[in-house]
Every structure is written in C-alpha cells, then in structure tokens.
C-alpha cells in the first residue's frame, strides 16, 4: 500500500514573539521542527506499512530548508520525500496550500491513503486534511484516534466526535487526519540517519507539479490577515512557601483579599 504523509514545518518553540511593525513571527534564530501531529501521522503510516507493505512518501511545502525535516522523516523510515518549493507558493492560506499539495498527486504514484496531522501547532486550523480530500475528490475522516483495521480497499477507524467517539469505515483512497496520541513517534536509528543523508529528495516548483499558479500562494488565497497580536495573559500564579501554618496564613490572606 502506498501512503502519503503531509508534513508541516512549524516554529520550534511555542514562546514566539511578533514583530510589532510587520506583524510576522520573529523566529528568534531557533530552528523549525516537524509539526508534532505530523510525526504521529508518519508513525501511523510506518506501522501500516509494516503490516501491509508498500511505500511511505512524505510531502511538504516550504522553503528549501524544509528538506532538513523531510530527511529526518526518511531517517525515521519513510521511503521517499517530496518538497514543493517555489516563490509562487509563498503566502498561501489553507485553500491554496491544499490545492498545491493536491497537485503533487499529478506527479506522484497513486496513493491508497493520505495521512495528515489533525492540525498544526502554529496555525491550529485543522483545515488542510479535509480541504486536500476535497481537492482530490476522495473521502476524509478527521480526528482519528485509532486505525482499527485496514486492507487494500477499506479503512476502519475510531474517531473523536462531539461528546463521544465513532467507528467509521471508508473506501480507499481516502484522507485521514490523526491526533497526536495515535502513536508515539519512533526515533531514527544511526542506520536510518546514515541512509537518509544520501537519499534523493524530489524538490518541485509549481510548474514541476503542473499547478495553476493563479491558485497557488498569495494569488490563490482568499484569506487576509488583518491583524495578529499576542493575547494578554492576566492569570498569575504564586508559589506559597513556608511551614504549614505559614502557608495556611497566606491562603487565608488571599481569601480575605478576594472579599467573598
């Protein structure tokens, strides 16, 4: 079974700050990392491959440095990687991104299953998986907690829904988006890292995947960012130290201060 896993590069830290002039993220020189949800998606794909055979391909869209992350996926066991990298992709919202990712299928072998992380830790939209399925005209199951059964033709999963869980079956090919806890990602081995260093990565431009440039990047993005800002956190915490009676006195002091 051929499986495609979509990978997003996200900032390495959650403590990002915004440039007050340009409203863009200050990357603070820290390296970007693979979106943690996507690492779990890769692990699920590798487990399915161990069960059914086939190949796992990782796909990302981003700046040339993203090859570093794709190579990490190869070291963890993916068979091949493709990076979509072109100025034409810059400034893409989720619609333009999912269109561009879907165009990669113009040049990749047919995939039975596409696995995305449920969402990315920077954008939090959870839209790429469903939109990609829409662009490819195949079913999508989001919020997958467990793959219960999979054959060459069908997949049965347990997914989260409002107030509970559901067991869902779909015909393949399909897209699933997975939660982080679906699997604990394996670490690469020395052998994996050694092999990944020399493996070819397929880097493509918009033309290279036969994409319509008017639907890529900023041109293809109806979303406009009007303003971004850091929310003010008003919650404060205090560590109460001292002997039990001192701590009790402090708690009473806080209580009295609340005047309730």
């Amino acid at each position: 079974m051929n499986i495609l896993v979509c990978i997003k590069s996200v900032p390495a830290t959650t403590k990002v700050s915004l440039d007050p002039v340009t409203h863009t993220l200050i990357r603070d020189g820290r390296q970007s990392v693979i979106n943690p949800f996507d690492l779990s998606a890769l692990e699920e794909a590798l487990c399915i491959r161990e069960h059914l055979g086939g190949e796992v391909t990782v796909l990302s869209m981003g700046i040339p440095d993203t090859t570093r992350l794709l190579r990490d996926c190869l070291a963890r066991g993916a068979d091949r990687g493709m990076l979509l990298s072109d100025r034409a992709f810059a400034g893409a919202d989720t619609l333009a991104t999912s269109y561009s990712l879907s165009c990669a299928m113009n040049v990749l072998p047919p995939m039975s299953l596409i696995i995305c992380g449920k969402m990315a830790v920077d954008g939090d939209t959870a839209q790429i998986g469903p939109e990609l399925a829409g662009a490819l005209g195949i079913p999508c199951i989001s919020d997958v907690l467990e793959v219960k059964e999979i054959t060459e033709d069908t997949i049965i999963v347990r997914r989260g829904i409002d107030g509970g869980e559901a067991i869902v079956k779909a015909a393949l090919p399909a897209v699933i988006t997975v939660v982080k806890d679906i699997r604990n990602p394996r670490m690469p081995s020395i052998a994996g890292i050694r092999a990944a260093q020399t493996m070819e990565l397929d880097v493509r431009t918009a033309d290279g995947i036969l994409a319509d440039k008017s639907r890529c990047g900023l041109n293809g993005s109806p979303t406009q960012v009007v303003r971004t800002f850091i929310p003010v956190r008003e919650q404060k915490s205090e560590v109460i130290e001292g002997s039990a009676s001192e701590q009790a006195r402090r708690i009473i002091g806080i209580w009295e201060g609340l005047k309730i």
């Binding site: 390495a12 990392v33 693979i34 943690p36 690492l39 990490d72 070291a75 990602p185 394996r186 670490m187 690469p188 081995s189 020395i190 052998a191 994996g192 890292i193 050694r194």
Partner: peptide, 11 residues
C-alpha cells in the same frame, strides 16, 4: 547500528 534511538529534536 539499526538498534539505536537517536534523539536530535527536542521532542
């Protein structure tokens, strides 16, 4: 060397 875990990322 296949039987190794290499941790390069924070996670």
């Amino acid at each position: 060397e296949k039987n190794t875990w290499v941790a390069r990322t924070a996670t």
